[in-house]
Design a protein around this nucleic acid. Structure first.
Length: 137
DNA sequence: GCCAACGTTGGC
DNA sequence: GCCAACGTTGGC
């Protein structure tokens, strides 16, 4: 089991949209580092869902239901998507501010490389965010 | 709306 | 293959 965090602008695609649609193809990643992270995802992995630009908080957990396959929306280039489904909404959202104020979370991509849209998390980091979100899985 | 950080592009 | 210029992302 691996743990991840993805970012989405909520007015483009929010966690609630994911819940409403039941699942979603995670398309449009055009960054090699992010793509390589997508390709490392395994079915069943859990993915924290972060709202960028607006909200600036982790709002829920998604689950990888289909491992990577070629991005059908890519006109050229070697890009990948995965399919995600909603897994659990956090009881309490975890803000970027709170993440930055937490010593255990100083090494995650949100803090170190704020522009990366798909990033791996250590299990301890994932658990810490769940704890801050007052959510058990 | 601004600007810093980063990734990508393209000329040499 | 280097590096300057440009575009994009995303926090503030």
């Amino acid at each position: 089991m691996n743990y991840w965090l993805v970012k989405s602008e909520p007015f483009v695609f929010s966690y609630d949209t994911l819940v409403a649609e039941g699942k979603s193809m995670w398309e449009g990643v055009r960054n090699y580092q992010a793509r390589n992270n997508l390709r490392a995802m395994k079915e069943g992995d859990l993915v924290l869902f972060y709202h960028s630009n607006e909200g600036l908080e982790v709002v829920g957990i998604a689950q990888v239901i289909t491992e990577h396959y070629p991005d059908p929306t890519a006109e050229k280039g070697d890009w990948s998507v995965v399919d995600l489904a909603p897994f659990r909404k956090l009881n309490k959202t975890v803000t970027l501010k709170a993440v930055k104020a937490t010593p255990e979370l100083q090494n995650i991509g949100l803090v170190r490389n704020p522009r990366l849209s798909v990033m791996p998390l250590e299990e301890a980091e994932f658990q810490k965010i769940l704890e801050m979100g007052e959510t058990d899985i």
